[in-house]
Nucleic acid binder design. Sequence first.
DNA 1: ATGGTTGCAAAGCAA
Length: 268
Amino acid sequence: MPIAMRLVTWNINSLRLRLSHIETLATTLSPDVICLQETKVADPLFPAEALRTLGFEHLHYKGMKSYNGVAILSRHPITPLENLPNWHGKEDCRHIGVVLQTPTGPIDLHDFYVPAGGDIPDPIENPKFEHKLAFVEEVTTWFTTRKPTRSILVGDFNIAPLEHDVWSHKQLLKIVSHTPPEIERLTAWRDAGFVDAMRHFVPDTEKLYTWWSYRNKDWQKSNRGRRLDHVWVTPDLTTNLKAMSVLTEARNWASPSDHVPVVVDFTF
DNA sequence: ATGGTTGCAAAGCAA
C-alpha cells in the first residue's frame, strides 16, 4: 500500500510574525513537510518549540537577522544535507537540503530562496541583479555536475518563466522576475535534470500565480500575479506526483504574506 | 510614467 506525502513550499515573509498561519496550514492541510523561505530569523531565535508543538518535530533551518532564511519543518525524521555551497561566496541563508525516507528509498529535498535581484535588470548597473544571475548559474553548474536522481527542488525562485506565469507577458518583459536573461538561466537550471511539477498539472496556456504584490489596493480585483514559487522533481519521481494546488486563499489571511503556499501531493 | 505596501528594527534597506 503506497503512502502519501504532502509537501508545502511557502515564502512566509517572517516566520515569527506568521506562526499562527503555520498552525492554520497544519490543521487544514496537515502537510508532512513544509519548506519555508524568508523566515527572517536568526537561528538562536527560531521558534522551534512552537513548531514542534504543532506536530513538526523534525526541523532544519538556516537563518540570519532581518533578511532571507530558509527552514524545513517535518513530521517525519529528516537528515540535513551537509556541505552545501555558499552560493556566490555569501553566507546569506538561501539554501538548505534534507534527506527524506520513503518506502521506495531516500529522497533529497532542496529548499531555495533565490535573490530577488533589485529593480534594474542590468547586471552592470545593479549588483543585486548580477548576484541573482550568478546564483542561478552556480546552482545550475552544481546540479549539472551531480546528475541528480530522486530529488525535489522547491522554493521562491523569484523568476516567473512562462508567458502565463505573469499577468502580462508584454508589460513584464523588462521587469525583474520575467526578463529574458533570468528566464534563460532558470530554464537552463531546470534542464539540468528537472521537471516542473506545477506545470505537470496545469497547462502552460493557463494562468498560474503564487505571488501578488502588497502594492495593490485590491490584489484580487487587479489580479496582477506572478508565479515566483516552484516545485521541481527529477523525472524518476514524476510517477509519484499525485496532485498540486496553490492555496490562493492564504493571500486573504490576516496580515498575509505576499506569497501563497504551493501544495504538492506524492505517493511512495 | 510613477507610485504603490510590507517587514525588520528602529533609519533606511530589501522586497
